[in-house]
Design a protein around this nucleic acid. Sequence first.
DNA 1: ACGGTTTGGACAACCACGTTGTCGATCCTA
DNA 2: TAGGATCGACAACGTGGTTGTCCAAACCGT
Lengths: 155, 155
Amino acid sequence: MPDADPPGWELPLLLFAGFRTLIDQLHAELAVRGHPDVRPVHGFAMQAVGIHGASASEIGRRLGVSKQAAGKTVDRLTAMGYVERVDDPRDARSKLIRLTPRGLESLRLSAEIFERLRAGWVEQLGADRVRLVESSLRTVIPAVGYPVDVPGWFG
Amino acid sequence: MPDADPPGWELPLLLFAGFRTLIDQLHAELAVRGHPDVRPVHGFAMQAVGIHGASASEIGRRLGVSKQAAGKTVDRLTAMGYVERVDDPRDARSKLIRLTPRGLESLRLSAEIFERLRAGWVEQLGADRVRLVESSLRTVIPAVGYPVDVPGWFG
DNA sequence: ACGGTTTGGACAACCACGTTGTCGATCCTA
DNA sequence: TAGGATCGACAACGTGGTTGTCCAAACCGT
């Protein structure tokens, strides 16, 4: 006879704890490697900027937030030196947001760290179980491309 | 030869998407059942209040935030009618925060909905895989009792 | 080519959630 | 009983959201 199932409310807590663990470890490592001031939301925003750059409105759409909110985040990333605003030669209304070399470096670093963190899970759980967790989650979430307006969503 | 592993950055995204899916479904159902104004952060806060009530400072410690932040959240929950402040008979400095019947009802409802949501995962994945996801996450997260200062943590 | 509609970005006002610092009142303890 | 710790309240602030307004530029149908 199997053990009783855990209560339903534990599942979201475990998922969040897993997410938070990874993000915290990422930023601890980023801090050591010269990026102590980036916050989780900045990483998502830079991901939305992308290698080719984007307008503030487009970034807002990718993040699932208003263009005004995206503009504010871009302001802060600009002040931190991770992105820059340049005039869009093809649209006089628009400013193109581009990652600076520092921004690109932080993205490259993040990808590398995430790879190592996943490898750590594989060490603890085995490759099969990690893949199983990933595929299970993929089948159970309705669609990819989730909005990442976490602070506003949660509170 | 097995398929290539997904990139490391996908794992946190999947965990977050799973968490968000559950929380969104919970609140959609709570809204239908008479609690349209509760936000995720309120649920966590009421959980911290607990059945026996607690002081604002204690709630802050349980949530991993300052007593001032906890006090503000209690203010909003009070205005919404989910908790009430009463004088603590054993400590004239302290106010005891207690769940109102409405607050208790929302907690009871949430537990019931989480149970059904987990059952939905079991339908899609099978009981074994859901248990495997849960146990995998338990082994990989450093400890239970995570702070839930999500908005401030993320941004 | 023109005129109406859509779009981009700036600005303002506002809200929610977090922080630190201060303060008086109360409690605990040496 | 004196001193230190803790409670709640208040203030000021930072950050991440929202809506609404505005102008200029782009787009599109006639």
